[in-house]
Amino acid sequence: MYGWIWRHLPGPAPVKIVEAVVLVLMVVALLLFVVFPWLEPLLPFNDVTTV
């Protein structure tokens, strides 16, 4: 999969590196700001019981 992405990025190798870093940062931002906040209420981490 990474090879497919690398082959389809335009430009020479230095430009591809910058584009790949930007893509990774966009995925991380999407996860942090959209996916994880949506998923957090569904996780059982706040259901703490003490005995």
Rank of each mutant, 00 (worst) to 15 (best):
L32F: 09
I5D: 02
V22K: 14
E40P: 00
M1L: 14
A13L: 06
L30I: 04
L25A: 12
V27T: 13
L25I: 03
P10E: 05
F33K: 07
P41L: 04
P12Q: 08
L43R: 09
A20L: 11
V15A: 08
P12V: 04
L30N: 08
P44N: 03
L39A: 09
P14V: 03
P44I: 01
W38P: 00
L25S: 06
N46I: 00
M1P: 13
L42I: 03
L42P: 01
V15E: 12
W38E: 10
L23E: 06
Y2A: 13
P12N: 11
L31N: 11
G3F: 05
V34C: 14
A29E: 13
L31H: 08
V21D: 06
R7Q: 11
M26K: 09
L39Q: 07
L23H: 11
L42H: 12
P10S: 09
E40I: 03
Y2H: 14
N46K: 15
V35D: 01
M1W: 12
T50G: 04
V51R: 11
L9H: 01
L43I: 08
I17E: 05
V34I: 15
Y2K: 14
M26W: 10
Y2S: 13
D47I: 06
T50V: 08
A13Q: 06
L42F: 08
L23Q: 07
F33H: 08
F33W: 13
V35A: 14
V28E: 13
V51S: 09
V24K: 04
A20W: 04
M26R: 12
I17G: 03
T49H: 13
T50N: 08
A29N: 13
V28R: 09
N46Y: 10
V35I: 15
L25K: 05
A13G: 00
V18N: 00
M26Q: 09
A13K: 07
P12W: 01
P44F: 00
E19W: 05
L9V: 00
V51K: 05
L31M: 05
V27K: 12
L39T: 03
T49F: 05
G3N: 15
V48S: 00
V28Y: 10
L30V: 12
Y2M: 15
E40L: 10
L23A: 09
V35R: 07
P10H: 05
V22W: 08
K16V: 03
G3I: 06
M1G: 15
L32W: 03
A20N: 04
L23M: 14
E19L: 14
L23Y: 10
L32Q: 14
L39H: 01
L25F: 02
I5E: 07
I5H: 04
P41E: 06
R7W: 02
P41K: 02
V34Q: 10
V15L: 12
Y2L: 15
L25H: 00
G3Q: 10
E19R: 14
P14I: 01
L30A: 10
V27A: 15
V21C: 06
H8A: 02
I17P: 01
P44R: 05
L43W: 10
V28P: 01
